[in-house]
Design a binder for these strands. Structure first.
Length: 480
RNA sequence: UCCCCUUUAGCUCAGUUGGUUAGAGCGGCUGACUGUUAAUCAGUAGGUCCUUGGUUCGAGCCCAAGAAGGGGAGCCA
């Protein structure tokens, strides 16, 4: 058909000149009045309006211009006579690249429920909401690498299949190529993993941290950004069985340096989104506000999405210790009036999400970083503090999301680490290499984990983690 | 895994105290109109009322079990 190369819609809208002839390809969002085709190619949330002359165009061709169809148009850029757009394309020729049977295509030019769209995850990216989320997701992936690169960190690919059963971050998915209908057994009657592909029991990783620490002991500042798997039977809007996690690990950082980096990192990412995803965020902001209007007054957000994003960038995160938090919670109204499901009575209790939400959403009304948690409720690798009761752990708590980052200063002292491993009954044989890091040239170091989809929840204002990853994996759900 | 809620047309939802032929908007189809903005107007088709069993003269509605979806909790990122 036309002589010109395809022009992306974002470039037509931002950089084309009136009078220019060009080719646009994309998917029909809606076809109005038998002459106005709204085309979207995903390069921007905005559509280009292509205007056909129905008097001179084949009627049978026009009938195939249906919502969802893929088309190619050649035409001239002209100033629009209508109000909704400044330029449009006056069509000279129109070609259907792919029909979409209007009787069967499930998407209509109207609002669909997120639940319905989850059932058609292969098509939902064709909606404004999901294409915006995909674009913001890309921007955040890029910003993560940009941030760490600018700070001199090195990206490390840690293994996805792990032979260590000691990561201690939850239930794991087994990896095997044994014949599950005929499992080899050893003398004790248990599965004989010597027969398995790796000659030992293996799982999908639940964290790249331990391996990242090895790189940290040579490259000083590293980070991982990879898929992570948890076989927990979690059915919440904040959990996935397969998600992406960012785990920086820094030599010579103490817990305070660690918190400084976490705060700087989050602010960098949100700033990047504000500066680079303005159109998509404006749409998502409006979407959230429309959704909020359906809710009763009490459940509505106090701030809009844009206000929340700016708020995080502009305000210092509140920092306090676990012990200080317990004092605040113990004397809080909901605790005194027994409104908490789990009342805070004494030091040592694990904080429930209702407590974290109280601190973040009611008491401080700001992101909060808690540190120095009781050692008994935290992982074996966290550095033991001088008081003998706490470890140098830190959690960054965000409004609406809860824990977005969890991290710690790592225990770098061989004897302390070894005794902690023994106390907690963790199989030491799997951790020999981890312990050797402390034997040979150990160094103080710290790190944290950021759940990428939790960040996405915050940046997009979406309420369910299944809507910020293209193909969510949750219990009973691995379609697509 | 636990608690609560929901399930009626392709989508979003009404459906009275158990009563005869189950409705609306959007979408689809047919036509009209032709500078529209989720176009508009007219007409029209479209139903396993989630499933199974029960109560009843009679069940979309009541009861029981199950399934699916959502919200909250736990676990965590």
């Amino acid at each position: 058909m036309g002589a010109t190369k395809r022009t992306k819609i974002i470039d037509v809208l931002n950089a084309s000149k009136v009078g220019e002839e060009l080719t646009v390809k994309g998917w029909v969002r809606t076809f109005r009045n038998n002459q106005f085709i709204a085309i979207n190619d995903g390069s921007t949330i905005n559509n280009i309006q292509a205007v056909v002359d129905f008097n001179t165009t084949d009627e049978n061709l026009l009938k195939r211009v249906t919502t969802g169809a893929c088309i190619s148009v050649v035409g001239e850029v002209v100033e629009s006579m209508g109000k909704g757009q400044s330029v449009e394309i006056k069509v000279k020729s129109l070609e259907i690249l792919g029909d979409a049977d209007a009787d069967k295509y499930p998407l209509q030019p109207k609002k669909h429920s997120l639940e319905f769209l989850r059932e058609i995850a292969h098509l939902r990216v064709r909606t404004s909401t999901f294409s915006a989320i995909y674009r913001v997701r890309h921007a955040m992936i890029f910003a993560v690498h940009k941030f760490f690169t600018e700070k001199g960190f090195f990206n490390v690919h840690t293994p996805i299949i792990t032979g260590s059963d000691a990561e201690g971050a939850g239930e794991m998915f087994a990896v095997t190529n044994l014949d599950l209908n005929n499992i080899p057994k050893n003398e004790e009657g248990k599965v004989d993993f010597k027969e398995d592909f790796f000659g030992k029991e293996t799982n999908l990783t639940v964290s790249g941290q331990l391996e990242a620490e090895t790189a940290c002991m040579a490259l000083s500042e590293v980070y991982t950004f990879g898929p992570t798997f948890r076989a927990e039977n979690s059915n919440t809007s904040r959990h996935l069985a397969e998600f992406w996690m960012i785990e920086p690990e820094m030599a010579f950082y103490d817990i305070i340096d660690n918190m400084d980096l976490a705060e700087e990192f989050l602010k960098y990412l949100v700033t990047y989104a504000l500066e680079n995803c303005a159109d998509d965020l404006a749409f998502l902001d409006k979407r959230s506000q429309d959704e909020d209007k359906q809710k009763p007054q009490q459940q509505r957000a106090e701030m809009s999405l844009m206000e929340r994003l700016k708020f995080v960038v502009e305000n210092e995160f509140v920092r306090l210790t676990y012990t200080e938090a317990i004092d605040i919670l113990r004397n809080s109204n909901p605790n005194k009036k027994k409104k908490f499901k789990y009342l805070i009575n004494e030091w040592g209790a694990d904080l429930q999400s209702e407590h974290e939400r109280y601190l973040v959403e009611k008491h401080f009304k700001k992101p909060v970083i808690l540190r120095d948690y009781p050692r008994d409720i935290k992982a074996f690798y966290m550095r033991q503090n001088e008081d003998g009761k706490t470890v140098a752990a830190m959690d960054v708590l965000f409004p609406g999301i809860g824990e977005i980052i969890g991290g710690s200063q790592r225990e770098e002292r061989y004897d302390n680490l070894k005794s902690r491993i023994e106390e907690m009954g963790i199989p030491e044989k799997d951790l020999w290499w981890y312990l050797e890091l402390r034997k040979f040239g150990t160094a103080p170091h710290s790190g944290f984990g950021l759940g990428f989809e939790r960040l996405m929840l915050f940046v997009t204002g979406m309420g369910n983690i299944r809507d910020v990853i293209p193909f969510p994996r949750t219990p009973e759900h691995a379609e697509f």
